[in-house]
């Protein structure tokens, strides 16, 4: 008589595919505390040091706040978000190098979903990290000039930044295909952070050459957008510039990652 029943198959929907891959992405990310914790502690350490070391800067005439920790918290959020690049890109590079991507390509899942759903894990971690940074800042005297609503918008921007850097990480992993190249992003981002208006408002920078570099550096606008909610209140221009650059970056990076991977991950 009949024994085991053959397993019928139903087509897996896009939502189902995203859910499945996102679940895996979250599990993988959260199971690497050795990667997550340093990425979280390092920005907090820099926040602690700069908040004290930079206090002298608040005495400069025209400095927008008396609290340097409030001034620099925005940069800390940006710095924290940059770790999403190595995290997301590293996981994708591991999948490609290790052959796990081939396993997923042999299923009905669409290639775009395979790529984009990888961001789920870093989004969760990045968002939690941003909340922690904000809470720590508040505990040490940070004030949010834009109020509760501003704090929520701040977290939303932080999430957008995690998405931005995660996408850049995916694109780098897709284009370079190796973990080493993805890890090199860390150094690049450190350099770009320091060459921005992270430590001093642009209008107070003394050296013109540095002011020019900071003006052309997109990181300056990301930092200024987050900082504006803390220091200034609702600064439409700063927010628009920062959000616009971040959104444009997400679109370019994701689009680029999908295009590159569509070509490199061959499947008929």
């Amino acid at each position: 008589m009949s024994t085991s029943v053959a397993v019928p198959r139903v087509s897996s929907s896009v939502a189902g595919q995203v859910r499945t891959i996102a679940r895996r992405s979250i599990a993988r990310t959260l199971r690497q505390p050795a990667v997550i914790i340093p990425n979280m502690l390092f920005p907090l350490f820099m926040l602690a040091v700069l908040s004290k070391a930079g206090n002298q800067a608040t005495k400069i005439p025209g400095f927008p706040t008396k609290s340097y920790i409030t001034f620099v918290l925005g940069a800390t959020l940006v710095q924290g978000a940059t770790s999403a690049a190595t995290l997301a890109g590293g996981l994708l590079a591991e999948d490609i190098e290790g052959g796990f991507m081939n396993r997923m390509l042999l299923t009905p899942a669409s290639k775009s979903v395979l790529i984009i759903a990888q961001l789920a894990g870093v989004l969760i971690v990045g968002f939690l990290q941003s909340i922690i940074f904000l809470l720590v800042g508040l505990a040490f005297g940070v004030t949010v000039k834009a109020g509760v609503g501003g704090a929520l918008v701040l977290l939303a921007i932080a999430l957008l930044l995690v998405l931005l850097f995660g996408s850049i990480g995916l694109f780098t992993a897709a284009a370079a295909g190796s973990l080493a190249q993805v890890q090199a992003l860390t150094g690049l981002f450190i350099a770009l952070m320091f060459l921005s208006s992270m430590l001093m408002p642009r209008n107070l920078i003394k050296h013109e050459w540095f002011k020019t570099i900071a003006t052309y550096n997109p990181f300056s606008y990301l930092v200024e957008a987050t900082r504006s909610l803390l220091v200034t209140g609702w600064d439409g221009q700063a927010l628009a510039l920062g959000i616009g650059i971040a959104t444009g970056g997400v679109i370019l990076a994701l689009f680029g990652a999908v295009i590159v991977l569509q070509r490199t991950l061959e499947r008929t």
Binding site: R9, S11, S12, Q17, R24, M104, A109
Partner: peptide, 13 residues
């Protein structure tokens, strides 16, 4: 978890 992932992507009910 590997099995769940594979079955979900393969469309096993």
């Amino acid at each position: 978890e590997h099995m769940d992932l594979q079955m979900a992507l393969q469309g096993v009910p």
